[in-house]
Design a protein around this nucleic acid. Sequence first.
DNA 1: CGGGTTTTTCCACTGAATGGAAAAGCTATC
DNA 2: GATAGCTTTTCCATTCAGTGGAAAAACCCG
Lengths: 262, 262
Amino acid sequence: MHSVSTSDVPADVPPDVLGRAIRLLVLVGEHPHGITLSALARESGVPVSTSHRLVNSLCREGLVEFEAAGKRYKPGLRLFQLGQQAGQVYGFAGTALPVMQRVTRQTEEATLMSVLDGTRHLYVHYVDGPQPVGVRSDPGRHGPLHCTSMGKVLMAFAPDDVRTDLLERVDLTPHGPNSITDRDVLRATVARAAERGYATADEEHHRGLRAVAVPVLRPDGSVFAALSTAAPAFRRDMDDLIALVPLLQSAASELGVRLPAR
Amino acid sequence: MHSVSTSDVPADVPPDVLGRAIRLLVLVGEHPHGITLSALARESGVPVSTSHRLVNSLCREGLVEFEAAGKRYKPGLRLFQLGQQAGQVYGFAGTALPVMQRVTRQTEEATLMSVLDGTRHLYVHYVDGPQPVGVRSDPGRHGPLHCTSMGKVLMAFAPDDVRTDLLERVDLTPHGPNSITDRDVLRATVARAAERGYATADEEHHRGLRAVAVPVLRPDGSVFAALSTAAPAFRRDMDDLIALVPLLQSAASELGVRLPAR
DNA sequence: CGGGTTTTTCCACTGAATGGAAAAGCTATC
DNA sequence: GATAGCTTTTCCATTCAGTGGAAAAACCCG
C-alpha cells in the first residue's frame, strides 16, 4: 500500500460535469486572447481528453468559440447575449450609462460603477474621462473591497450581518502605498463612510490614484451599487474629489429610484 | 399497448448534462422576471427532479440566482460578468458606445448596433434618442434579417458563401406592413445594399418604424457589425434617413479601424 | 380543513461521462 | 529530412455520476 496511493493530486473531488464545464468557461473568459486546449486542461486540472470533450460541447452551444487558426478557444457570442440579458434583469442596462456619461461630462473625470460580488466588487460600468491621462477599468473584472472607495461604500451600506461578516473575512493584501492593512482601522473607516454617506480611497488601490464613491440605494434603502469618480492624484487632491460628492449623490439617487425594490 | 407508448414526446435524445443545463440557462435568461422550477421543467422538457438538480448546480456556480421569496430563478451575476468579458473580446466594449452616443446627439434619433448570429442578428448596443417617442430595442435580443436595415447590411457584406446560404435559409415571416416575403426580391434588395453601401427598412419590421444601416468593417474588409439609425415614420421620411448615411459611415469607419483583424 | 400544485428529498439502476492510451499533427532544432 | 517534444484528436472498456420515478414536504387558495 502506498501512503497516498491511487490519486497524487490534492483532492479527490467528484468530477461533476457541470462544475467542471463552468470552470472551463470561466477560464476561457479570463483569457481575452484565447486559450489553448492544453493550457485549459493544465489550469483547470481537468484531464485533457475530458477538457476537450467539454469545451467542444460548450462550443456546440455557442458559449465558447473555437478559432481554428491558432487552435484557441474564446468566449462565444451566446455568452455575451446571456450576459446582456442578465444585465437587464439586474438593472445595469438602461439609465445607468447615460447618467454616468453626464457625471463624467460635469466632473471631467472617469465615472465607475460596481456591485458587491462575494468578498470583492465587480466593475459593472465604466465611462472614460475626457483627459488623455485617466483611470482604466474594465467592466467584468473584480476589485478589492478594502482599498477602494467603492468597496468601502458597498460594505458600509450592506445589511448588518453581511457587513460584519465581510469585515472579518476580506483579504487585506495591500494594493497601493496607502492600503489599509489593519482590520480595526478598516472597521472604523467603513463606519465613518456609513455616517458621512461616502467613502474615499487615497492611493490605496493604485499609486497615484484617488477616488470617491457614494452608494446607489434602492427605493427600499438597500444598496444596489456604488458610483465613483476616480482621478489621477496629480490632478485632483482629496478635497477636490470630496467636493464632487453632492453631484455623485444626485446621480445616484436618480439611478436608485427606478430600480426594482429587491 | 398504447400507439406511441413509452415516450410520447418527439425525440429520445440522449440526456447530455451540459446541453440540458445550457437549455435551462437560456430559459432563465429569457425570463427577466424569474422563472419557477416547474415552468423551467415544463418548457425545457427536462424532468422536474433533474431540472431541480441542474438549476441548483448553476446556482452554486453563480450563473443563476434563486430568489427565495417567490421561488424564482433569475440570471446570476457571474453570467453578467462572463458576458462582459466576452463583450471585451468581441470588441463591443470601449469605443462603440461613446461613438454611438455622438451619432445620437447629431441625428437626434436612436442609434443601434447588431452583429450576425446565425440566421438572425443580435442587438449589441442601443442608444436612446432624445425624443420622448422613439425606438426601443434591448441589447441581447435577436432580430430578423430579412426585414431590418441591419439584417440586410449584414447579409450584403457577409462573405459570399455565407450570404448565398443565408439568402436561401432565412425565415421570411412578415413582421411589418412592408416586410419582404419573396426570396428573389430579398436577393435583389441585398445586392442593391452591397452596391450602395447601406440598406433601409421602411416599416418592414414594425408598423410606423423606418431605419437605415451601414456596415462596420474591419481593417481587412470583413463585416464586424451593422450600425443603424431608427426613427418613427411620422418624424422622418426615408430621404431624411438616407441623408444620415454619410454620418453613419464616418462613425462606422471610426469604429472599424480599431478592431482586431478577425 | 382538504384538494391541487409546486418544491424538495431519496435511492436503486444504468448508460453517459470518464480518462488512459495511442494515433495523428505540428514545430522546432540539429 | 530525420528526431524529439509538444499539442490536438480519436478510441473504447470501465464505472460511477447522473438519472428520474415516486414519495414526502411545503405551500396555496377557496
